[in-house]
Simulated scan of single mutants.
Amino acid sequence: MNILASHGAADERVLVYETNTLFDEKGSFRVLQFADDAVQGAIDLQQPDRILFEYPRALIHLIEHNSTKENNGGDDIFIIGHGIGTLSSYFADSNCVTAEISETVVQLSQQHFGWKGSPILIGDGRLLLEQEQRLFDCIVLDAFTSKGNPQHLSTVQFFDMARAKLKRQGTLLINVTNKGKLDVRSNAIYNTLQVVFPHTYAFTLQAAEERDIRNSILIGSNHPIRYRLRSMAGFAPYHPESGYVMYD
């Protein structure tokens, strides 16, 4: 492993490094990683335009397949959580706004991952979304702490506000890491979504063991959710267990 940058200490550490192996794949990769060893983004140095991870590919399909007819492509998108800028780069031709709490993450994405998107709003994503005056076709929540999805981005009050910022047929998509339908926390997020949105759906990647950590995508929408399973990059529908509802 060749370390290119290291910022912060202990729980706040952000690392950029190059490696010849990433999740059992051989090659040449550059990785952005947080202190808890959670990989936040990576590029294939031999194919920089390739989207390595399944979850952004699935999110892209869901955004495009559920875009409204009047704009034909989900023109107005608000993203909370930048990483290396995979989603905002893909939707560079749309009216895409990104909120990122860490200025260091933005700087590293520019210096080491070639990100050249539109300006990013630095600050808490909830407050920045609340301040927006326009409505969005899609809001994407891709923000994590060492404990998972932030509590204040998972409550009835937050989802109420997010729904108010969506167009009539708008969609909220949430990337979570969990243990599938056995995960109490993500089940609570999904149950909270159901309180606010008339249509909800959940997808997850398959894992070798039931309790293995994997990515899942939770959706709340004002309209029935459309998708093509063959375009979901290995994600499949699942039914989260009943759980508690989160409030501020």
Rank of each mutant, 00 (worst) to 15 (best):
G83S: 08
P48W: 10
T68A: 07
Y90H: 15
H61P: 10
K69I: 09
P56T: 05
L52Y: 10
E54S: 15
E70P: 01
F53H: 05
H61R: 08
T98S: 05
P48M: 12
N95P: 00
I79V: 15
P56E: 07
A58P: 06
F53L: 12
H82I: 08
S94F: 00
L87G: 01
N71R: 08
D75S: 07
D49R: 12
G83D: 03
L62C: 05
C96S: 11
N72R: 15
N71T: 07
A99L: 04
K69S: 14
I63Y: 00
S94P: 02
I84V: 13
E54G: 06
Y90F: 15
I63M: 13
G83E: 01
Y55K: 07
A99H: 01
H61G: 05
D49M: 06
D76N: 14
G83C: 09
H82P: 02
G73N: 09
G85Y: 14
Q47V: 09
A58Y: 04
S102C: 04
F78P: 02
G81W: 10
E100F: 13
I51Q: 13
H82E: 11
L52G: 04
T98E: 02
F91G: 00
H65L: 07
N72E: 11
T68K: 02
D93A: 15
H65Y: 15
I63S: 08
I80C: 03
A92M: 10
F53K: 08
G83H: 08
E54K: 14
H61W: 07
S94W: 00
G85P: 08
N72Y: 12
G74Y: 05
S102M: 05
S89C: 09
G85R: 08
N72Q: 14
N95S: 11
S94T: 11
I60Q: 06
E64W: 01
S88W: 02
G85K: 12
D76E: 11
R50F: 12
T86R: 03
S67A: 15
G83Q: 04
Y90A: 03
A58N: 13
F91L: 01
S102H: 10
G74T: 06
E64T: 12
T86Q: 05
E64C: 05
L59A: 04
R57I: 08
I80S: 04
H65R: 15
V97G: 00
A99I: 01
V97A: 01
